[in-house]
Amino acid sequence: MCGTCAPAALGAQAAAPAASAASTANDYRIGVDDVVQVSVWRNPDLGITVPVRPDGKISVPLIGDVAAGGRTATEVAADIQTRLTTYIRDPQVAVILTELRSHEYLSRVRVTGAVRQPVSIPYRQGMTVLDAVLAAGGTTEFAAGDRSHLYRKSDKDTKTMDVQLERILNRGDLTTNFTVSPGDVITVPERRL
């Protein structure tokens, strides 16, 4: 490889991750409790920095409530810009995420049903069903552990995985001790009497 070619090749390789990161940032969907900053060029009085309310909206001076939850910053900026044209000639709006808080809620694992303490715990890489159930204090005496389920939501549907919790706890059979993902829900039903 020639000496002048190497820097150009390295520059192209370095640009690829940067473009990927920018694409990911542009695709981020704003969630409840995320903090957004709205700036309107040459109109500092219309600028705000606010958390997204539980209803998914933010209040913007002059135009009122604007839906932000589930939308990208670019989509929210375009909506505000369109609505401001009634009051301002050629408004230029920027929406910037200053704090990403909603991912903390989405990045949890929940354990419900016949456990000692139903919990919503922060996801940790490598966490398994057993780890999550132990964080919930284990099962109660009324649990039907082998009828437990792990629910995982994807873009299109919810996947259900059978978990044989009694076998995991009592026999050390780790066949169904699945690795959990952020947003998973583990349910432990009670025995039928």
Rank of each mutant, 00 (worst) to 15 (best):
D162Q: 13
P182R: 01
G183M: 02
S107A: 13
A132G: 05
L165T: 09
R42A: 12
L169R: 12
G3D: 10
D33Q: 09
A144V: 03
A16K: 12
T85F: 00
A14D: 06
Q13E: 09
G70I: 10
D146P: 00
D33N: 09
L134D: 05
G31R: 01
T158H: 06
A144W: 04
D184P: 02
D157S: 15
T74D: 14
A143M: 05
C5L: 14
A21C: 01
D146G: 02
A143I: 08
L174D: 08
A22Q: 13
F178E: 04
D27S: 14
T85E: 13
T175V: 13
G69H: 12
A94N: 10
M161I: 07
R53T: 10
S23L: 10
T187F: 08
D184G: 11
S59Y: 12
R167L: 14
E75A: 15
L84S: 07
V76I: 14
Y123Q: 01
L150F: 06
A143F: 03
I121C: 04
S39Y: 08
E190P: 01
A22D: 11
N170S: 12
P44A: 01
A22I: 06
G69M: 09
D131G: 08
T24N: 02
V93D: 06
V52A: 05
D34T: 08
A8N: 03
R152H: 15
V35P: 00
S181V: 00
A15Y: 03
E190Q: 15
L174Y: 08
A8H: 05
S39R: 14
R152Q: 12
I48M: 12
A8G: 01
G69L: 12
L46P: 06
E75S: 14
T158A: 13
S39A: 11
Q92S: 10
P91M: 04
R101T: 10
A9T: 09
A67Y: 04
Y105D: 05
N43M: 11
A18K: 09
V60Q: 15
G47W: 06
P118N: 15
Q125N: 12
V95S: 05
P17G: 00
A68P: 02
